[in-house]
Amino acid sequence: MQSDYFAFVAAAYGATAIVLLALFAWIRLDARAQRRALAALEARGLRRRSSGAPPAGEGQS
């Protein structure tokens, strides 16, 4: 009877690993996507006012 319970313990720990790894991956990938979007916007010359003046030759907003 005892040995049958292994599947339950494995399911609990397995689901934990899957959900937490998925959560971690989602947060990291989302961060990477945002940073890429920011880099793309910066390449187009768009900057936040507090991040300093754009390079010379750019029109002011």
């Binding site: 959560l23 971690f24 989302d30 961060a31 920011l38 187009r44 936040r48």
Partner: peptide, 29 residues
């Protein structure tokens, strides 16, 4: 782990809001 994930997600959310603000700026331009 919760606080690590939370901090990570907060940082991402701040970046997302910056992206949104800059995209809106781009649209206005």
């Amino acid at each position: 782990l919760f606080f690590a994930l939370h901090l990570n997600a907060m940082r991402t959310e701040i970046l997302r809001r910056r992206v949104f603000a800059l995209q809106r700026l781009a649209a206005r331009r």
